[in-house]
Each structure stands twice: as structure tokens, then as C-alpha cells.
Write a protein that binds this DNA or RNA. Sequence first.
DNA 1: CTTGACCCTCCCCTTGGGGCAGCGTTTATC
DNA 2: GATAAACGCTGCCCCAAGGGGAGGGTCAAG
Lengths: 269, 269
Amino acid sequence: MFTIGEFSRITGLSIKALRLYHDRELLVPAQTDPASGYRIYSDADVERAKVIRTLRDLEFGLDDIQAMLTDYDDDASLVSFLEARQQEITLRRTHLKHISRELTHIIQQEKEIAMTLQSNEFDVETKTLNTELIASIRFQGKYSDVGPYFGRIARNFGRYLCGKPLCLYHDGEFKAEDADIEVGFPIRQGQSKDGVTVSELPGGKAVTLIHKGPYDTLSASYQKIFAYTQQNKLQTLIPSREVYLKGPGMILKGNPQNYLTEIQVLVKE
Amino acid sequence: MFTIGEFSRITGLSIKALRLYHDRELLVPAQTDPASGYRIYSDADVERAKVIRTLRDLEFGLDDIQAMLTDYDDDASLVSFLEARQQEITLRRTHLKHISRELTHIIQQEKEIAMTLQSNEFDVETKTLNTELIASIRFQGKYSDVGPYFGRIARNFGRYLCGKPLCLYHDGEFKAEDADIEVGFPIRQGQSKDGVTVSELPGGKAVTLIHKGPYDTLSASYQKIFAYTQQNKLQTLIPSREVYLKGPGMILKGNPQNYLTEIQVLVKE
DNA sequence: CTTGACCCTCCCCTTGGGGCAGCGTTTATC
DNA sequence: GATAAACGCTGCCCCAAGGGGAGGGTCAAG
């Protein structure tokens, strides 16, 4: 016969838990001293407590445990309970897996951006771009209309995205109203569908500059780029490209002063 | 401007949740009609609500979300939060994985037993046993001492177990007190360690009988077996074996009347 | 007799809302 | 203008499985 403290140490169940189980009639001590109210547990109670602990470790609810202990005396009859629990846990696990993947994705994105921020001095550079596979939508409209198009591509190709969103400007001049804009994402693979075109974006020699700040100050960076191309007698090609290295985040909108946009202009070699 | 009901439909957050977030000052509506107390939400509130929803979908707590929205305006600064959450989720996932494995194990065991129960008529049979790799402990003592030895083997070889527990009786006669008993489990692989010996249990022609009932009635089944061997002029070998197909379950003790024990006695061929 | 360890009951707290009662407001319809 | 349906408000209790603590009784040793 054990006091509740001893019993707690034996079974690994907290005193609070034991009192709760007594209340719920899940584990009623063999005796209760009527005078003092002290609970006195027996060896048989130890057995039952161990069973309860096992089931709690499997994260069954107290009500389930109650039912299992009341109605059954054999593991075989518990199989349906176990299978139900198994299924719940599987569901929960896949859900957590999704969350985990999502988090990993966001974290990785942010880390890449942090590296770009550190390593770059935001000067005009000349580099060779690789040909990329992109999923894109081309439309006529205003720049501010791009949001939903990005959303549509992301929904259709979410699993295959492998880079930052970008815009191609097919006009040779600036147009506020009726611009010929193509929005897209680099993807690993995929087929055109639902109005989204999968195509190869050709690479080549390009003059690039990373612009830091809100989108409405991009023109200053364009000026730098074109100053550079003229100075170096480079002939620019259209479409020009903007790669949105860091814009509004996955969660927060962020400070536009910290947005990073790489402007890429292909030039004749 | 939206009423709480409209806002709820827009954001996918329940009215109850919205009122709670207001209480907690996590999402305070743009205005509150002083006369009626009606909450009136703005477009800016929609943005904030979406952020909150995203974070809730990642199963952040309201307090965490509060902190994230109060102190930061950029995803980059959330990375430490995200990583902490990531780690919690990983922990939780591995825990659930353990539970899931445990459940699968129990369920599978019980299903095997259920099949044995259906397909067998509990008659004396002659069959050929395969050689098995077992992890075992041999000791001198009483039958009732076996429990802890099984526990020790299971702890050391838990991952490699691939069959039912068994006992080998090395005495040629019945001994109550100082029997020479070897307890073991079939395993897939492993090395001797911590007093547990890994060895090959030789197979061969055997006379077997599945005994149904508590262990103290095993003698009746032994009697049947030896009656059979004598009748068929078979010479029995020691050690004899008991394989505990169904004993006390992983969770419940079960009804001893339903215990199943296969007695195996090798015979000379 | 005291002291410290142990035990009791009772109440509040946790998370993220759900449900309901009781009452007020808005809006459309008659 | 009246009325009813739909919508909104606050306030209270509820969930699971205990944890924390207050206030008070009990037990064993010194």
C-alpha cells in the first residue's frame, strides 16, 4: 500500500494527474482514509496505472482510456481504437510536415536574400545569364496589375518554382497605361496550362544592377544602367528584365526601403 | 469598411476569433461605433488579418504573432522566430513518428495473432522449423523470473526484433526451483552485448502444439505432445521450446484463457 | 511539543476559441 | 410605420489535461 507520493514516484504519474484520474474515476485508489481523506493505492492500482501511462504515452485522451479500460480486457479488442488513433496521428504528421516545409522554404528564401544584401555593393555589373525555363503570363496593362498574375502562376506551379519572380518589359519605351508586360517564375519543369506559358528564357551577356528601395525609384537605377551601356558602347536588347530579389515577404510586407530588385538588360555581344 | 461578418468571410477568420483578437489587441478594428459597439474593419485590417491567418496556419501562438507584428516589419527579422518554430515542429514530428511506429507494431502483432486464432485447430502437428537468429539470456531460476530478462533483451534489441518471445528449457526434467532456462527473441541482426547472447537457434523436424489457456495448464498440452511422440516412436530432443504467441498484451493483460503458447519439441529425423 | 514533510480540497490559469443566453441594431418587407 | 429576419454586442461557461498556489489537516521524528 502506497501513499500518493510514493505511488507517483512508482508510476511516473504526477500527483496532480493521479488526483484528476481519481476524480474522473479512471484510477480509483484501493482505499481512502475516511478521516484524513488520504488516498491509499494498492499493487493492483500500480498495474492499472502502468496501463494508463502507456496509453497516455500514446497520447490517447482520458475518455478513450476510460472506454478502453471499461469495455475491454484484451489488446485484440483495442485494435480499432489503435487504428483510429493511428490515423489521427498520421493526419497530424502530414499536416506538420506541410508546415515544416513551408517554414523551411521561407527561412531559406530569407537567408539567400541576407547573403545578397551582404555580398553586393549594388554597382553596375556585366555578367552572363543562363537560359532558364520559366512559367509566365504576358499581358497588356499597368505595372500595378501584376499581383494576381504572380498569384496564378504560383498556384499552378507552386511545387516547381525554383527562383525569384521576374518581369519582362517588351516595350521599347516606357508606357504607363498599356504596357506589354510578361510576369513569370523560373521553374524546374512543367507544361503550359491554365493560361500560363512555359518557355525558355534565353540567356546571354547582360548588364545588371541591383536596385535597393521602393519600386517607384527604379528609374534612377535604369538611368545608371543606360549611362553605363552608352559609355561602353553596348547595344541593349529588349525585353529588359526585373528580378524581384526581395519584395514584400511571405509574411510581412517589409520596408520598401529594403526591397531589392535586379535590373537585367541583355546586350549584343 | 466591413462589418465583422463580412470581414470574417473575407479573411476566413471566425467571428469569435476576430473578437478574441480584438480583446487581445492583436487585430483592433479601424473603428468601433461608440453607440452600438459594432466593429468596423478597414482594408488595412484585411492585410493584417491575412498576415495573422498565415501565421496561425503555421500554428504560431497568438502571443508569438503579437510579438512578431509589434516588433518587426520584415520577414528577415522573423527568421529566428521561424527557426524556433521549425525546431518545435520537428521535435513534435519525431515524437509522433515514435508513437505511430509503436501503434503500428501493436496493431500488426494483434492482427497476426488474430490470424493464428482463426486458422488453427490446436492439434499436434509435425513441421520443420527454420534456423533462426535469436538474442537470448540463459539463467538458472524459476519460471516466474523470466519477465525482467525479456525486458532487458527488448531494450537492447528493440529495433531488430522480428518474432515472438520464446523460452528454451534446457533441463531434461521438470524443475521448479533451479531450472535452466533461456529466454530470447528472434532478431534480424545484432551482436552480443550487455549480457545478451546472439546465436543461431537450430531448426529441424519438430512436433508442435498450440496451447490455449493460462500458463499453469501447459502441462496438459505437454502430455498430448509426448503421447504423440511415443505413439509415433519419435525421439525427442532438448531443449524444448515455448513460443508465446499471445500472452499479456502490450497494453492490457488480456484474459489468460485466451493466451496462446506454441510448444515445440525437436525430434530426431 | 515542534518541525518539516506530506496530504487534502478548492479555486484559478493555461490555448484558441465554441456555444449559448439575453439583448440591441439594421435592413428589407409588408 | 410596424415587424421580422439577420446581424451584432457583451458576458458567461465549456473544452483537455493538468499546473500552481492558498489555506489547512496529518504523520513521523527529534
